[in-house]
Design a protein around this nucleic acid. Sequence first.
DNA 1: AACATATGTTAGCAACAGTAACATAGTTAG
DNA 2: CTAACTATGTTACTGTTGCTAACATATGTT
Lengths: 236, 236
Amino acid sequence: MLLLLTYVNETNLNKGFDSIYFLKRRKMARNKIQKKTAYHHGDLRGQLIKAARDLIEQHGPDGFSMSDACRLAGVSTAAPYRHFSSKQDLLTEVAMDGLRRLGAEMEKQASDYPRGTVPSIAAIGRAYVSFAIREPHTFRLMFSTEPHSGRIDEVKQVGMGSYGVLLREVALYLSEQDITEAVLRTAFPLWSQVHGLSFLSIDGKLEVTDFPVDVDEAILIATEKLLPPHPPGQKA
Amino acid sequence: MLLLLTYVNETNLNKGFDSIYFLKRRKMARNKIQKKTAYHHGDLRGQLIKAARDLIEQHGPDGFSMSDACRLAGVSTAAPYRHFSSKQDLLTEVAMDGLRRLGAEMEKQASDYPRGTVPSIAAIGRAYVSFAIREPHTFRLMFSTEPHSGRIDEVKQVGMGSYGVLLREVALYLSEQDITEAVLRTAFPLWSQVHGLSFLSIDGKLEVTDFPVDVDEAILIATEKLLPPHPPGQKA
DNA sequence: AACATATGTTAGCAACAGTAACATAGTTAG
DNA sequence: CTAACTATGTTACTGTTGCTAACATATGTT
């Protein structure tokens, strides 16, 4: 008890970090009531990822600084390194989180339509591009390789999980039982199309001419053209 | 003359920058012979762009530092700011240079085939993806908006110049005299396709499954599917 | 030769990523 | 209940970076 008081006083004298310490005291009190949800800070790891997500969407991955995230979370600049080995490591976490959310949204949007049809596949495309437009910086981060060096396999696996949503839908369209080569050959151009459309959208290339591109229409038309004509006598 | 010697000596004593000064002396001599191509350094501006290009391709736009470029060019870290208002400004220059080279290559590749045909349009796509694979970091830089804030219009214009290569080719295919709305509606999905393919390529997504994608084949097939069937009785 | 301009230099700033040494809170073993 | 152990914070620091200010030098012009 004596030690605690000494420490706090010393710190308050040294620098003007009172606010942080008051914050901390409040959180500690709350944690006691909430029956210890976490250690000192209360899920600093989670809050840092959240802070990073917010900051990245505001200023881009380049404009994002570890220091800013620390300020937002109310901790010292050294604290994050107990949870993430580096800034890149934190960014990788944000990227994988984004990939999972993207997969979930594609699945959800597809489920509004009869499975394995042009509309359900187009819905996946719209979910994809929507995500990119809603969170352009996170989207860019999700698909760039450089920042995730060392954990590429991990990211790739999460990404494949989301790609699987499209693959399954295409397999249904083709009436294939498995993810066969035919499914892959059909799905990839679709991915490529919406991926390109996403990047062109977030980089402001839809309005380079006098005829701005209607994203949803573009997705639907391209989907119809890129999918093989439906095998006769199958599906509705 | 006395002043020059004094300056050089002083500098050599102060820091170990002898090599730089020898370099400089050599260049000054050469410039004299070449009849003053430039001021002190000899086209520092051009060399910085070149250095930036090299460094960006080696370590990515993020890994690129102004200091590195200075070391490569053999000048102090303050020198670049006589030619570029900021690091971003230099990057913008590299991006526009890349856009121009891309346009030139697309034009060149297309010219190997009968104009306004599937092969010539596919050739443009191959040139596009080839560029991305050859200079992935520059390619990313060319199409990202953030770094070029303040000069977006300039970049957009250069980009449109290159896009025009595709537009003209599609116009020929459609037998349109101008860049009509039909041309734009046909060309955009093609752009989108190769743009997406480019990003997926440089981000290592061609090998996510057991059936790696053949880029050239993918371009050709998608081009055929996305182009409208050729109007009967026209072209060869 | 004198001046103006363009282009370089040194020195220094603030922001940042990351580390080392230390302090404190929670967990577990005795 | 305490002692050790571990997890999670802190301060203080280092080296790098982008950029600026003040100054020096080279070139071109009158």
